[in-house]
């Protein structure tokens, strides 16, 4: 069960690769698909590893990606 996920606005991406390089769980990769401007936006290759730490969001110079944590996880964990 992943702790979080990322939201990607592909049309803003300029394909610099900062998020791919600095993701602590190495869960991102530049896709082979193009966006409207001809850059390769990132996509998740191992969604189950994502911790939602938002380091990709901190590095992204174009505000195209950000990580978020699932809020329900903690409550579920406590109930279990």
């Amino acid at each position: 069960m992943p702790k979080g996920s990322v939201a990607i606005t592909t049309e803003r991406c300029k394909g610099c690769g900062f998020c791919v390089e600095f993701c602590p769980t190495h869960g991102l990769e530049l896709s082979s698909a193009f966006n409207a401007k001809g850059y390769h936006p990132p996509h998740m290759i191992s969604a189950e590893k994502c911790s939602g730490c938002n380091l990709c969001g901190m590095y992204c110079p174009d505000f195209a990606i950000f990580g978020y944590k699932y809020p329900a996880n903690k409550a579920k964990g406590e109930a279990a």
Partner: peptide, 21 residues
Amino acid sequence: RVPTIWCPGCGIGTTVNSFAH
């Protein structure tokens, strides 16, 4: 105003993230 005019890989956007946070 976004997307920005900065070149792909320019570090200014990254500093703006830190500043906004």
